[in-house]
Simulated scan of single mutants.
Amino acid sequence: MNFKINLLLSHLNEQLNFIDLEIDNPIKKCEKAIEISINSKEKLRVLIQKTNFKSDEEEIQFFKEIKPQFTSKVIYYNTIFNIEMKKPNGGTRVLKKYYNNELIKLKAFFDNELDFYKYYRSGNIYLDYKYFLRGKFDIKLSLDSYYFEADKTFATSHDFKVAKILANDLIQLYLENQLIMIENKDNNEKSQHKPNVKITWTAPKVSLTELLYALHSQGVFNNGAVDLKDIAEYFEHIFEIDLGQYRRTFLEIRTRKTDRTKFITSLNETLIKRMDNADDII
């Protein structure tokens, strides 16, 4: 069973990594990620219902450590989807207030679940038999209302709370990153003279990363005497874009099964076509 679960989780992470690389629009990214995460969690449910746990310890481990990894992804992407859908139109001040309010909501969850948060984060196990065994709930232990509507064959009283903690960690990072990007953009706008026409990168970020590595490999900047990091930061500055973990993105590009230089190949084909069309006109 562990092998099948690990394979399912690995496949889910691979799909989500691919979406993260190929889709830049946060709303579309979340829609696709939610669909994939729900499908993966349903496969997990079917797998568990066909299998008997060998011991209470194995069941506790599943609901405390494994299932929350699947559920947390649904929570994370659904929350980000709602945050981005409700994001107001406005300047940096409006957006900062909006994202800071979302951070306050996360803190409210932390405050409401402080006892369990401390229990889980400190690695305690003395209440695991109540928290993470099916049918062993204790009404005195601050249960979420959703638990009474949940499938009791695939839920314990607190596995959802663990998933919520894991998701909130990622949501906090997302919100803090958005605030940093807003601050950097605001500072850039104040410190530099802008041209009359604003040019933004509208292709996927993965394409810009592919181009970044190609130009660095060719040594086209400063006669090749410039670091990859400096070029990446320059691209992020002029295009007002966050390339994120571009080194990891390059590793993903390297492992593509087909056409590892997809964007550069497309550039080549498009330019040749334009040249050919120009010849026809002449």
Rank of each mutant, 00 (worst) to 15 (best):
I241N: 07
D138Y: 01
Y120P: 01
F154P: 09
N188F: 13
N196C: 00
K229H: 11
S122W: 00
A232Y: 09
I282P: 00
I125F: 08
K161R: 08
I83N: 13
S10E: 10
N100Y: 04
I5H: 12
N187G: 07
L243Y: 06
G219T: 07
K64H: 04
E14G: 01
E149Y: 14
L251D: 14
R260N: 06
N78P: 08
F235N: 10
Y131P: 06
K4W: 07
T249E: 11
K4Y: 12
H11Y: 07
H158G: 04
K107V: 07
N52Y: 03
Q49P: 00
T51H: 13
T156Y: 06
I165M: 13
K29R: 15
C30E: 11
D144E: 14
F3G: 05
I231G: 01
L179A: 05
K86F: 12
I34H: 08
Q61R: 12
Y234L: 14
T258I: 14
F110Y: 12
Q192V: 13
E113R: 06
F160L: 15
K257T: 15
F132N: 06
A225L: 12
K73V: 03
V94A: 12
A150V: 00
E149K: 12
L127K: 09
F154M: 09
E65D: 09
N82E: 15
S191E: 09
D169C: 02
Y174I: 03
D230C: 02
F63P: 07
W201T: 10
S55T: 14
Y234P: 00
E35P: 00
L141H: 07
Y99T: 04
T270G: 02
Y131W: 05
N13Q: 13
N223C: 01
F3V: 14
L8W: 09
V94P: 02
N100F: 06
L211T: 11
N188H: 09
I231E: 01
L8Q: 10
V206K: 11
E236A: 04
S266G: 01
F154E: 08
S217I: 02
A108P: 02
K130R: 10
G224P: 05
L95C: 07
E42I: 14
I238P: 10
D276V: 11
L267H: 07
S55M: 02
N184V: 00
N6E: 13
K86Q: 15
A214E: 14
D24K: 00
I125H: 08
K198F: 06
S217K: 14
I199H: 09
E57G: 02
R274Q: 12
F154W: 10
N52V: 05
S10C: 01
I19N: 13
Y120K: 01
E59G: 05
Q218F: 15
T79E: 13
L44F: 04
K96E: 15
I80W: 07
L215D: 11
I182T: 00
